[in-house]
Amino acid sequence: MKKILSIFLLLFLFNLNFSQELLATVQVNSQQIGGTNQSAYKALEKSLRDFINNTSWTGKKLQNFEKIKSNFAIVITEREGNRFRGNIVVQAVRPVFNTTYESPLINLQDTRFSFDYVENENLIFNERQFSGKNLIDVISFYIYIILGYDADSFQSMGGTQWFQKAQQIAQNGESQNTYEGWKLIKEPRGRSVLIKEIMSPNWSQVRATMYTYHRAGLDNLFNQDQAAAKKVIFDALMQLKMYENTFQQSYYFNLFLDNKSDEIFNIFNSGNNGGIALADLKNEMTILAPKYTEEKWSKWKQ
């Protein structure tokens, strides 16, 4: 019995520490600005891929299967010398226990993205100060956001140490006036706004929901009897009811529901909901994520 308990404990601890580095793909798309010389963009793509995947962000040495699968897609829309402007899409997924399914952790587009880059320059990250070029600052910020999201999904408030690093990068970014995306005012979907809300006690229930939804709910959803896991997910989502009057202003809250809307719909659209009050969840999702009502929530059948 002791041996069985020890094995269970090791597996549990493994899952709590799962995925604390990144296994990232990077794409740099320059089609909008044309030109035949693509060497700078290919060099940028390789440099970023090496920077993200070869930097030790957490101090842990992990096998590839333990790392967080992520993607950074950059679209360049303007170039003036070594100054580039465009947008970046940041995506990451989380494995679900005992399945091949990967749950979306984060999927966002940052349209306030500009940076300076010289072909083949070394990318070196210093979390204590702003780089002066914005490229590694934005990338590193989102890496720590991904690490925080992932850790929050395995342990309650487990991402705090990584979110604190993202917060420090954002504060460094706020101190300069050259690049957009770091200001707390007039940039409602900016980077500083996102990390401020993540770290705010006012939105701590969203972080608590991240943990319960994934660790107690999703990781048990593929058992033979799904009813218990669905009830956990249902209860976790219903806890968000407290934000009915404030969610419109929150980037973090709306990002969570945007990232999870398809998954939430599919979980409760497959039948066998174990007698949960689906009408209550439908009403709650209609209030909190009204833009998905027609294509998702209204299609749920009790």
Rank of each mutant, 00 (worst) to 15 (best):
residue 89 V to P: 00
residue 254 N to S: 06
residue 224 Q to E: 11
residue 278 L to R: 09
residue 140 S to F: 01
residue 216 A to R: 15
residue 214 H to N: 10
residue 205 Q to L: 12
residue 282 K to L: 07
residue 184 L to T: 13
residue 83 R to Y: 11
residue 107 N to P: 00
residue 220 N to G: 10
residue 177 N to Q: 13
residue 150 D to S: 15
residue 138 V to W: 02
residue 55 T to Q: 05
residue 265 F to N: 14
residue 163 F to Q: 05
residue 256 F to I: 04
residue 142 Y to E: 02
residue 36 T to G: 14
residue 103 S to V: 10
residue 4 I to S: 01
residue 81 G to L: 06
residue 116 D to M: 07
residue 287 I to C: 07
residue 281 L to M: 14
residue 253 F to R: 02
residue 174 E to P: 04
residue 176 Q to S: 06
residue 54 N to P: 05
residue 258 D to N: 12
residue 241 K to Q: 13
residue 133 K to N: 14
residue 297 W to C: 10
residue 44 L to S: 00
residue 125 F to H: 03
residue 273 N to T: 12
residue 170 A to Q: 05
residue 279 A to D: 15
residue 202 N to C: 03
residue 88 I to N: 00
residue 73 A to Y: 05
residue 50 D to P: 01
residue 265 F to W: 13
residue 213 Y to G: 06
residue 172 N to D: 12
residue 90 V to N: 02
residue 211 Y to P: 03
residue 179 Y to I: 01
residue 291 K to V: 14
residue 117 Y to K: 00
residue 132 G to K: 01
residue 183 K to A: 15
residue 148 G to P: 05
residue 73 A to V: 00
residue 149 Y to P: 02
residue 199 M to F: 07
residue 32 Q to V: 06
residue 203 W to G: 02
residue 67 K to R: 15
residue 180 E to D: 13
residue 189 R to H: 04
residue 290 P to A: 03
residue 168 Q to G: 04
residue 40 A to L: 05
residue 232 V to H: 06
residue 260 K to E: 13
residue 201 P to W: 08
residue 258 D to A: 09
residue 93 V to S: 15
residue 94 R to V: 07
residue 168 Q to H: 14
residue 58 T to R: 03
residue 232 V to E: 08
residue 276 I to L: 13
residue 1 M to W: 05
residue 90 V to D: 03
residue 83 R to D: 09
residue 257 L to C: 12
residue 70 S to D: 05
residue 40 A to K: 02
residue 8 F to G: 02
residue 183 K to M: 12
residue 212 T to N: 13
residue 163 F to Y: 15
residue 218 L to A: 12
residue 147 L to H: 11
residue 72 F to W: 04
residue 222 F to I: 08
residue 296 K to R: 15
residue 89 V to F: 03
